[in-house]
Nucleic acid binder design. Structure first.
Lengths: 336, 336
DNA sequence: ATTTTTTACTTAATCGTTTAAGTAAATTTT
DNA sequence: AAAATTTACTTAAACGATTAAGTAAAAAAT
């Protein structure tokens, strides 16, 4: 802690602490001469207000929390970047919590925040978040803005991308590239975004009249490391798909590696499109066709919405929900 | 804010707030019966202490700050992951601040923290951080642990990797793979880590008797976007290098792309080794030989050191400095 | 010249904790 | 049985800010 307090300034200037406090926030009750003296001394002594004293008194912490599954992920790190940018600009501080996809962690973090540590929360739920009571309870006292992985059941602002449409677009893109047997693979089927993408995929499959039996939907179990086996199995099946929609960036590596190992040529033997924000997409071989989410913008928007609601003390902000479109960037993995 | 306070519990139980407070921290001054009553009611009403009241009183925030240049970077996001893991485990909260390589931002963030918002800081300086007075000043009041990009001039714990050795190793690796004209390219030459790596590179060049005139050291200017031109120029020079040591992961993409565009084969025409933690290294074509830093471990170690010092209230922790070795992983970009 | 208003402050309460110091009753020691 | 100690509390101050309410002096209005 810095030991320069309002009290010290008051003593030095023979004024009351109230005068100092008011002078510092430029109150009209204080004479210009006094304000100048106060400001000068404050500057000289490098006075920085104790944030917690203020927070306690005002019941406002000027702090928000970001709850995300992980940060070593292009999407989430870009989103965090956007959030931090807006927060810093508006004078807010950003606490970061990683849930590592664990519901228990999500619960205990929210619990620990509920004593007033933050003014609001921006979050993306875990794959395990199937019940929402803990979030609802928290939301009774604090504003929440969801981004990407939302809770439909909770009535608040949600910043998402057009997942359904993108599932459709991705699949359509493969179909137009000549695929007939398109597999969809996901890291989880419990997430809202994944089911949206899956629905879009199904719509395209149906609309273009593909044989659904040849279009498997594969969800990975929670334990990591099993991806390879599952993908390898899929690739060795008698009815191997000729197209893959991968709904998460984590899937790129196993798909590329298995294809390499099994000598399956992308895009000749199988075309791949991946929901991914990885900047390396353009230097993979072949370059990867992606659905790129507006991660940074989503983060910025989520923070803007939350901070605006805090500014005006308005709790309800469902109408602030925004859908920002992702972009399909066609590259070598779907174009022969 | 939650409206359940110690005062409320006290009223409900006809006890003083002091008794409640002591009961909650299991003080020996309170009878077991009373403790049980307090705990039961606290649980029933979902009491969560106001963190700021406690912080104010104890002058401890149980909060640390992480200052990093950016988060959308494999190294820093992995390090943050490690920091958050340790912090959460020890009951600390983690504020995240991105400097975006701007010295001014670093200064103003540290200033804003100096009122007692955090108990300590973990940081990696910006490329612009050539003067250290602001950090030194901050460090007079709060403990700092540096990781990766350290300030040699400041006497505190520094968690680094063996950059010098790795610069040497990387260069030696290229030489052993047959390279004679090795370029070193960096995003900046002002950082301690880069100069370490550069020194290691120089040592290898000298030790193996390469012609120094054919081994250019190239620093990129601050403005992004110029990398391509510089790399392209280097590649078109009459004396094109046959090996590249790239000291940052941001350099992979321009190098690969320029080689592709200019039809220069990696590794046949030029071999590339990159300081990088990108998980996509193994699916690039060719797969990328990397010096992989122990980012997660460095983050964990930095947090451990800081939190330990906070626990024992010990300010000086220079001896806690740790060097964790990076790993050279030879892949396709240096092996024909 | 008196009253009213404005200016420029101060006093004291408050936010929700923690904790040093005090205290009455119960228990133990002598 | 008196003195000393222990138990189980309470009172009140403190952390560093903010702010409602109070006040004396100066300025303005009547």
């Amino acid at each position: 802690m810095s030991n320069v307090t309002i009290k010290l300034l008051a003593e030095r200037l023979n004024l009351s602490t109230a005068t100092i406090s008011k002078a510092l926030c430029d109150s009209h009750e204080i004479s210009i001469a006094t304000k100048e003296r106060v400001l000068a001394l404050a500057k000289e002594l490098d006075y920085v207000p104790n944030p917690y004293a203020g927070s306690l008194r005002r019941n406002k912490s000027k702090t928000i929390a970001v709850l995300i599954p992980e940060v070593a992920d292009s999407f989430f790190s870009l989103a965090l970047n956007g959030i931090e940018e807006v927060a810093l600009e508006k004078g807010y501080h950003t606490l970061i919590y990683l849930t590592h996809e664990k519901l228990e962690r999500e619960k205990s973090i929210l619990k620990s925040l509920s004593g007033g540590r933050v003014d609001g929360v921006i979050m993306s739920v875990t794959v395990e978040t199937a019940s929402f009571e803990h979030i609802k309870e928290f939301n009774r006292h604090y504003p929440i803005v969801f981004f990407d992985r939302v809770c439909k059941e909770i009535d608040t602002a949600k910043i998402t991308t057009n997942d359904f449409e993108c599932g459709y677009m991705a699949t359509k893109h493969l179909i137009e590239a000549g695929c007939q047997k398109i597999a969809l693979i996901s890291i989880s089927n419990s997430l809202s975004i994944i089911s949206e993408r899956t629905e879009g995929y199904k719509k395209a499959i149906e609309e273009f009249g593909l044989n659904e039996d040849c279009c498997p939907i594969i969800d990975f179990p929670d334990e990591p490391g099993l991806e390879y086996g599952i993908i390898r199995k899929m690739m060795s099946s008698s009815n191997r798909p000729d197209g893959i929609v991968a709904t998460g960036e984590k899937l790129t590596t196993p798909i590329y590696l298995v294809c390499q190992q099994m000598d399956i040529n992308i895009p000749k033997d199988i075309k791949v499109i991946c929901f991914s924000n990885q900047s390396s997409a353009i230097i993979l071989n072949p370059t990867l066709t992606t659905i790129t989410q507006p991660a940074f913008e989503m983060g910025k928007k989520a923070a803007s919405v939350l901070l605006k609601s805090l500014k005006y003390n308005s709790l309800i902000l469902t109408e602030e929900s925004t859908v920002i479109s992702s972009t399909l960037i066609a590259r070598g993995s779907t174009v022969c």
